[in-house]
Nucleic acid binder design. Structure first.
Length: 758
DNA sequence: GTGCCTCGAGTTCC
DNA sequence: CTCGAGGCAC
């Protein structure tokens, strides 16, 4: 291994070979360790190989493999599916619900592309199959991998199961060298009924609907079970392809059909919103007789060139949308209203309902949004549902938004029983007794307890270990909750001392369980009394809640993890290893994990890229704490960061208790420096570009998106920081200012040539 | 100041 | 998945 070339000196070709070698080595090491329980290389060597892999990927992002070891937290557990990183993300679709929104969709696309209202623009329209999406990867015409959607970026490898589905060809003739076919796995009504009949016969549990049956069948670990289940597949899209399938969506679908895939016969070409709407109605009429479930119609811009120009928003393509059928409605009794407390302290009312079937699923909980929704007002004080307030005991209408999230939609006043009272929304946190207040213009009421509120503390911890944050294998929401209740972890830093405490390497000081139990234990009257007492303490006696909280900071585990039910020595060991793996972590993830209000995943990435290093970042936060000065201005200058977010950030770092908690955490971490995305060979990476005047070959939005994809920052006004001005005809003051400042100015063609799109 | 467009936060059930 | 609101362009 001593002959390894330093990462900096690798050529692209070397890197490719090296990544392949590392993927292979690490996969073998994983199998040996996890499945055979016989490690072949030392942990240190394993970590070194993994780090080298990551370093090469960072330098050559384009070479990152679909099976990259950096995306795999250990190998597939022997009892699950391996993770697969999609070469091209599997996205979801935006939705429209009526005629007017179909027209809006068309308008938006025309505006983005700069097309006049009468310019021709075609769309495909096809039924939206209610199943689960699957990505099939063919190399040299052979099915090599089938992966579920997962979160869109990483799915599960279900290749063995996909091979048993008749509609999925195992080999293709005349296909591109690399072809990822995407489509929907589903089960027909007839097959679903028959399967449930067989299940009943066997005394096995039946499925609630065809979708669940299909999902359950595809995720069988034993593919012989999948083989016995009559799954089907419609192809409707593609991921990575080594050569273009066609010029249009329609022709691409026809090509997939020619390759041997089933494509939906109701796929049609429409010349605009009117035809789209007509086809939607046609499909809606046939819905009941199709023999399989559909939940709407999907529209896609037909020209693939236009699709490419339109591109993507963060989770959906701009060039497609789903026109959903109206949601199924059901009526039931509202038995109770409960209040949940979220990470930011938001009090959310949840309706407990007499269970009712809505769209094939039994619903017993539904969201009531917020205080005003219950009162029958929206956030602007406008009446909703005719201003009807919702009361416990009411007969309410429920639907599943997007066929997923249950919501209370309406209330039938004629069925209101006698003696109901308007719901009294709590002004005190039901979890910790702190005051719950509503800020001016805010729709939500929030608990002011901060970390002394057990609900907020737990939710913050859950957020900390969530997928986009620390993503610690084996430490999910459930474990965090349990560990919190046990008093083992009360803040993120505690996660990283678990191992030492578990091994008795640090001394037991005071079990936080005592402190925590005093907040969370008990129920009914006892709990109510305790909360009341606590509220008294906090509000009238002027006790500093943080002093009250202090003893919890000396929390420690009272007994080894292995003594707890369900935690063997091996699982404890695995957990500690998973935690150790995350001590080395990218800056953006740390920022997001802190759960600072208004600072989400995207913002964290942008901020991390802007500051690069943790120390530089905290120094800037300190210097900007009074919301003024150059560091404050720099913060606001970050694209996507406004005053609200900036204030939230600096306040979090300026508050003693919060800062101390953060410092305790970072003492356990090696925070990786963040770099701007390596836009290999991009001539405009890191440059600030301003567009002015009339652009003739692309719209402003398009130009901005394209420039940003190439690593440029697009600004609206010319300043000393501007690197390049792209001026079309009619450019005025900006061009003049650029000339004064001596900033390079080019025209639209010059720009296209520069970025290689001429 | 107004009107997009995104992101952030909260949500259920399997 | 949806709603509300932050950020930014017009």
């Amino acid at each position: 291994m001593s002959t390894e070339t330093p990462v900096d000196e690798l050529t692209e070709e070397d890197a490719r070979t090296e990544l392949e070698r590392l993927a292979d080595l690490l996969a073998k090491a994983n199998t040996a360790y996890h499945q055979d329980d016989a490690p072949e290389i030392s942990d240190a060597e394993y970590d070194r190989l993994k780090a080298r892999n990551a370093a090469i990927e960072a330098r050559f992002p384009g070479l990152k493999r679909a099976d990259s070891p950096s995306d795999q937290v250990g190998a597939a557990p022997a009892d699950g599916f391996a993770k697969v990183t999609h070469a091209v993300r599997m996205l979801s679709l935006s939705n429209v619900f009526d005629d007017a929104e179909v027209t809006e969709f068309d308008d938006r696309i025309r505006r983005y592309l700069g097309l006049k209202a009468d310019a021709p623009l075609n769309y495909t329209a096809e039924p939206k199959i209610d199943g689960l999406s699957l990505s099939l990867r063919y190399e040299d015409g052979t099915l090599v991998q089938a992966a579920t959607r997962g979160d869109g970026a990483v799915g599960e490898n279900v290749t063995a199961n996909a091979r048993t589905i008749d509609d999925i060809p195992v080999t293709l003739t005349g296909a591109p060298e690399v072809l990822e076919v995407r489509g929907e796995v589903y089960m027909s009504h007839a097959d679903f009924e028959a399967l449930n009949a067989r299940q009943t016969e066997k005394g096995a549990k039946t499925f609630a609907n065809p979708r669940n049956a299909a999902a359950g069948s595809l995720r069988q670990l034993d593919s012989s079970i999948t083989k016995a289940r009559p799954l089907r597949f419609f192809a409707y899209a593609w991921g990575e392809v080594s050569e273009a399938l066609a010029d249009t969506q329609m022709a691409a679908i026809e090509r997939l059909a020619a390759l041997g895939f089933q494509t939906n016969p109701l796929t049609a070409l429409c010349d605009g919103p009117a035809e789209m709407q007509a086809h939607y109605e046609e499909i809606e009429q046939q819905r009941a007789s199709l023999g399989y479930d559909i939940d709407g119609v999907v529209y896609k811009v037909n020209e693939l060139d236009l699709q490419r120009r339109l591109g993507f928003r963060s989770t959906t393509p701009r060039w497609a949308t789903a026109h959903k059928f109206p949601a199924e409605l059901a009526w039931t009794t509202l038995e109770k209203i409960e209040i949940q407390v979220g990470r930011t302290g938001a009090l959310s009312p949840v309706a407990r309902l007499t269970p009712v079937t809505v769209g094939g699923v039994v619903v017993s909980n539904a969201t009531l949004h917020n205080e005003d929704y219950i009162k029958g007002r929206d956030s602007k004080g406008q009446e909703i549902r005719g201003g009807k307030d919702i009361r416990v005991g009411d007969w309410v209408q429920v639907y599943r938004a997007g066929d997923v999230i249950p919501k209370v939609a309406d209330v039938d006043l004629s069925k209101r029983p006698d003696g109901t009272k308007p719901y009294d929304f709590p002004t005190v946190c039901p979890e910790c007794g702190s005051e719950a207040i509503r800020e001016e213009g805010d729709a939500v009421r929030r608990c002011t307890g901060g970390l002394i509120c057990p609900a907020q503390a737990v939710e913050k911890l859950k957020h900390f270990v969530s997928r986009a944050a620390f993503d610690i294998e084996g430490l999910g929401a459930k474990q965090v909750e349990a560990f919190y209740q046990l008093g083992w972890i009360a803040e993120p830093a505690d996660i990283f001392t678990l191992k030492a405490r578990d091994k008795g390497e640090t001394k037991l000081l005071k079990p936080a369980s005592e402190v925590v139990a005093s907040w969370t234990g008990g129920d009914g009257e006892e709990r109510a009394a305790r909360i009341e007492a606590r509220r008294e303490l906090l509000t009238t006696m002027g006790v500093d809640p943080l002093e009250d909280f202090e003893p919890a900071l000396t929390r420690i585990s009272a007994k080894p993890l292995a003594d707890i039910k369900g935690w063997g020595e091996k699982s404890a060991e695995n957990l500690f290893q998973a935690i150790d793996e995350k001590r080395d972590i990218p800056l953006g993830r740390v920022l997001f994990a802190l759960g600072i209000r208004h600072v989400g995943e995207q913002a964290s990435t942008l901020i991390a890229r802007s500051y690069g290093r943790w120390d530089d970042f905290t120094r800037a936060m300190d210097a900007a704490k009074d919301c003024e000065g150059p560091d404050w201005d720099n913060l606001l200058a970050i694209d996507g960061v406004g005053e609200v977010m900036a204030r939230s950030l600096v306040t979090a770092f300026a508050q003693d208790h919060e800062r101390q908690s953060i410092d305790r955490l970072t003492a356990h971490l090696t925070i990786q420096e963040a770099a701007a995305p390596a836009t290999d060979g991009s001539p405009v990476a890191g440059k600030t570009v301003v567009f002015t005047g009339t652009l003739e070959k692309m719209t402003r939005a398009e130009a901005k998106a394209r420039a940003e994809a190439l690593g440029a920052k697009v600004s609206g006004s010319v300043s000393a920081k501007t690197d390049l001005l792209v001026a079309g005809p009619g450019a005025g003051s900006k061009a003049k200012k650029a000339a004064e400042l001596g900033i390079e100015t080019i025209d639209e063609d010059g720009w296209l040539e520069l970025i290689g799109d001429a």
